[in-house]
Nucleic acid binder design. Structure first.
Length: 572
RNA sequence: GGGCCCGUAGCUCAACGGUCAGAGCAGAGCGCUCAUAACGCUUUGGUUGGGGGUUCAAAUCCCUCCGGGCCUACCA
């Protein structure tokens, strides 16, 4: 039994996420966690809401609430949606937790002691009307290059030129519109990543099995221009982890907080600590997942994230862990994803274009979305959601191939033999051939699932479902029943046994339907199949079952058209 | 400006430089009738964005053009 630590990129607290966000980290992470648990491994799967930073403060202000209260509410909303999508976190934490605050300050202390931080003075735009320093992109003005009137302080969207906020003509606050801005000096802690460049490069170079998408982004940052840059890791905000610790030697850091990108990944550890507390366990329980000197030596750590998150996970966070000088567990494998597009364009939170997690669950059960999203996950390049494709995939794969298989088998048996597994008859060549085929396909499925090749795994799973229909068609129990009822009984006994077999294999993708299949067959304790032949004899003659309700209803053309219209843009 | 990625059948996607470029869906034909008008079998369909080059051999490597996307470190 292996020990596997799985983390998904943290969803930002600010608002409900769309399906592109879901499929880019949390959903594939859940698939892997469920699969590994099913294979008997010891899994720790954590995620959390990422709650600090300027956007959270602004969103709270817009909602007219104190930021802490806003985060309390939004955390619960996101946690509920995660449950709705059946994301099987061992713990869904919060980056604003006590545990994360303590860990973040601990790492800062160690980095300072190890000479990897320093205080630098810089000048930054301050808005008197807003009473806050403005991050570059929160300063707007006229682009000095092209005259575009809504250029941001980091870059002009129109001509793509990179800018400094001070270059903008008639600069104003993007928050209030106020033009009462001034440059003020402010002091910040910098993480001296440049000192860790060689260690980071050696570490990246040792990861031969990482996808190019991951290593190329990391190397770009390591080698581009003057190489890896030092990063400011504090901000002039009130909401966040105070840039302090007892006895901190940082004069002038009072009232400042750590930058959200510094404390957010530390919350992976924090969430595990929160888990221990919630379970009533001591610190050793979580440290055995994270400290190589306290039991994490045999842990395999896998991170799931969108490609935009890669630099922080290949460089910044490892720099924090390495720089501490303590034996913290570094990631072993990073599974990163491209983007999911929506019907010819991008998902857009601001324009309400695309389907958001709450909306998705309001129109269809989680399994429909899970199946489509996972079987089309953007692994090798950006992929595309269209309603036509969604409807076709769900109707064909889930309703026709799998759902209808369960229906035809259970109903045939009920009509001819009653609601118990029939006895009599022998397995012959057709059954041996099926077992051989399923053994081969199961092996392929496991190989792809182990390798996190999700689309290939989905395809292999579908082929396993289809094999049941092929078998039934050629064995034709309805014809055999007229001549040789015992033969029909043998066929149906095998077909009934395929249902729990399918349920167990499918559970990582479609957990609710799998549960319904197992419940109908009264076989909730079915384990992952070792030997296919044995697995298909698990339900003995005389075993009672029930005919389940329709597992997957089809999506009609009318529904598809309505949803297509409803989610085209401009969310109310 | 710099860097990276992508472009393959009507659609969504596969293919270590090496058998006639594959699969699912859609389309066509046949079969079956247990089932959610479901299932099975057969089948149509591609000058791999254009052009050039390297090679015994190119979807794959190189150059170039066209089209689309991403990143560029203070949104996260």
């Amino acid at each position: 039994m292996a020990r596997i630590l799985i983390t998904s990129a943290l969803p930002y607290i600010n608002g409900i996420k769309h399906l592109g966000n879901l499929v880019g980290s949390q959903l594939p992470a859940d698939l892997h966690a469920r699969y590994m648990r099913a294979r008997g491994h010891d899994v720790m799967f954590v995620c959390a809401t990422d709650e600090h930073g300027t956007p959270a403060e602004l969103a709270a202000a817009k909602a007219g609430k104190p930021v802490a209260e806003y985060c309390d509410e939004m955390h619960e909303v996101q946690a509920e949606l995660a449950r709705g999508f059946r994301l099987s976190f061992d713990h869904y934490g919060r980056s604003s937790s006590r545990q994360n605050r303590e860990l973040t300050q601990h790492f800062a202390k160690k980095l300072w002691e190890n000479g990897l931080m320093e205080i630098r003075t810089e000048r930054q735009m301050y808005s008197k009307a807003d009473g806050r320093f403005l991050p570059d992109r929160y300063v707007e003005g006229i682009c000095p290059e092209c005259g575009y009137e809504r250029a941001r302080g980091d870059q002009c969207e129109n001509c793509t030129r990179q800018l400094e906020p001070t270059e903008l003509i008639e600069p104003r606050s993007a928050i209030s519109g106020s033009t009462d801005l001034e440059l003020r000096e402010t002091r910040h802690l910098y993480l001296l990543q440049s000192k860790l460049r060689d260690r980071l490069r050696d570490w990246i170079d040792s990861k031969q099995d990482w996808p190019v998408l991951t290593t190329s982004i990391a190397k770009k940052w390591l080698d581009d221009g003057e190489g890896l840059q030092d990063r400011g890791i504090t901000r002039d905000l009130t909401w966040g982890v105070p840039a302090q610790f007892p006895g901190a030697p940082w004069e002038g850091m009072e009232g400042k907080v750590f930058y959200v990108w510094f404390d957010a990944p530390i919350e992976y550890i924090g969430a595990t600590a929160e888990w221990a507390e919630a379970q009533g366990l001591d610190d050793a329980a979580w440290r055995r997942w994270w400290r190589e000197d306290e039991g994490a030596g045999d842990v395999r750590y896998i991170q799931f994230m969108g490609k935009d998150n890669v630099p922080f996970h290949t460089l910044s966070f490892p720099a924090t862990l390495m720089g501490s000088g303590e034996p913290w567990k570094l990631v072993d494998y990073i599974k990163s994803f491209n983007y999911l597009n929506y019907d010819g364009g991008q998902f857009s939170t601001s324009q309400g274009r695309g389907v958001f997690m709450d909306q998705a669950l309001s129109i269809l059960p989680a399994d429909y979305w899970r199946w489509w999203l996972l079987s089309h996950v953007p692994e090798s390049s950006d992929s595309e959601f269209t309603w036509e494709n969604f409807q076709a995939s769900v109707n064909k794969d889930l309703a026709d191939v799998l759902g209808n298989f369960v229906s035809r088998v259970t109903k045939f048996c009920r009509a001819r033999f009653g609601e118990t597994v029939p006895e009599g008859g022998e397995w012959g060549e057709a059954e041996e051939a099926l077992i051989e085929e399923l053994s081969r396909r199961l092996k392929a499925y496991e190989v792809h699932m182990d390798a996190m090749e999700i689309r290939k795994a989905a395809s292999a799973l579908r082929a396993i479902w289809a094999a049941g229909n092929e078998y039934l068609q050629s064995a034709a129990p309805w014809a055999a029943f007229k001549e040789d009822p015992a033969r029909a009984a043998a066929i149906i006994r095998l077909a009934l046994n395929l249902i729990p077999f399918y349920a167990v294999l499918s559970a990582p993708f479609i957990p609710d339907a799998a549960q319904a299949m197992l419940a109908a067959m009264k076989a909730e304790d079915t384990p992952w199949p070792g030997d296919v032949k044995e697995a298909l004899a698990a339900l003995p003659p005389g075993h009672a079952f029930t005919v389940p309700d329709v597992l997957f209803a089809k999506i009609s053309d009318e529904q598809r058209a309505e949803w297509q219209e409803r989610f085209a843009g401009k969310r109310e």
